[in-house]
Write a protein that binds this DNA or RNA. Structure first.
Lengths: 127, 127
DNA sequence: GCCTCACTCCTACAAATGTATGTTTTTATA
DNA sequence: TATAAAAACATACATTTGTAGGAGTGAGGC
């Protein structure tokens, strides 16, 4: 398991964009994906991309003369990493409970989740 | 709903400690709670606490001579806030799937979660 | 061939964050 | 009562993060 580091806000936004695009992703695609949310100056974005590469979150390749980026850390891995302190203390049910209690998710979400689990695991729940 | 801001690493560790203690929490209690993980210099910790108060994450009171802190944002609210971009895109099942696919949680965790949901909502799941 | 576009890469710098020192005030106590 | 322990509070400063400017370079249009 890679040694992850908590990403600063701006870099995390960039990663989220990359995760949602088809790798390898050219800079321009990332830029347009983010233009509503964070209309960065091109150089600013490039700085963030290289920092992400330094940190081992992205690999950089070339497609012609353009840089293309591929995530080296999946969104799930990162999510697990960020939520680890909570998950360790209280487990997945604890997480769901906390979200529910703070009204961040509702009863429908729980229903949906249960249906999803039943579907994914089969109703038997064998080992 | 308060306007939350993503906390920097150090401040977040402090919040996690506060969340796990009984409010209102005196500085010393936070300090000892964190001494393994982040053995901060007392002033360093005090700086972080006042920054958290400025940001509206903690309220500060006095208990005799000492400062005592009370969270103004619950752990669940914060969790929801941090995971919001993911949850909006993919919902709770998506989150669980991402964790599972990245092997951050295992099949037992899913079993446990399902059992928990069955318990919490009743097996019928009617609305 | 020359210009413009679209990028890359290097450099810079203000603001935010992480960590510590020094000073003062309390309270407890040898 | 002099001394030490505990903590507040102000201040400082190195490092990291956020954002941008500018120089260089291949590609396509004219």
């Amino acid at each position: 398991m890679k040694k992850l580091v908590r990403l600063p806000e701006a870099e995390l936004s960039v990663m989220r964009a990359v995760w949602r695009l088809e790798a390898p992703v050219p800079t321009g695609a990332i830029r347009s994906r983010l233009e509503r949310e964070r209309p960065w100056n091109l150089s600013a974005l490039q700085t963030l991309l290289s920092r992400l590469a330094e940190r081992g979150y992205l690999s950089v390749g070339k497609e012609g003369r353009q840089n293309v980026y591929t995530p080296l850390v999946s969104e799930g891995e990162y999510l697990a990493f960020e939520n680890a302190p909570f998950l360790e203390g209280r487990g997945l049910p604890g997480l769901v409970t906390a979200l529910y209690d703070s009204r961040s998710i509702g009863r429908e979400d729980l229903e949906e989740l249960r249906a999803f689990l039943d579907e994914a695991m089969g109703k038997e729940g064998g080992t």
